[in-house]
Amino acid sequence: MVAAAFVASVQAADGVPDITVMPIARDGQVVVSFEMSDAFTPDVRDAIQSGLPTTFSYDLELRRAGLLARTVASVAISATVRFDNLTRRYQMARSVDGRLEDARPTEDLAAVRAWMTRFERIPLSETASLETNGEYFVRVRARTRPHNTWFFWPWSGTTLGQAKFTFIQ
């Protein structure tokens, strides 16, 4: 039997985007479910409704806890939506590590929100590469496009979330 314990380390504050990360090690894989809350701001909705392609990019990293954290595995996920004001339909797409994984239309904004912010059981790594009783954490860094700031700042629009777990076999 394989089990894992996790602790969500980041608590959300009102109005500030936050990422809840839930790593699970089961059946020989480390999978991660995460959700970014409060990211669907009026600015984002306006951007989507204006027809701008809007992308939420997520960088997932599985790292060995320690003074010098070592990256065990990483995955880049992006969710994109574009609204057609003529047909009033949203065209959504998801890609993992640059590969298009899924694309579908919808007319439901709630579905768009879930599409962009909620991810379930994203495979991150094989458990074989983990050490028994080792402390690990999964860090999720999210970026949104387009930026809506006066001045470009490389770290603006970035949200971080992470969760620790001990791999027990």
């Binding site: 951007a47 387009p146 006066w150």
Partner: peptide
Amino acid sequence: YNQLRVLKRPLTG
């Protein structure tokens, strides 16, 4: 028009 409006701040920038 809406995209310009949405991106008013970065465009101004």
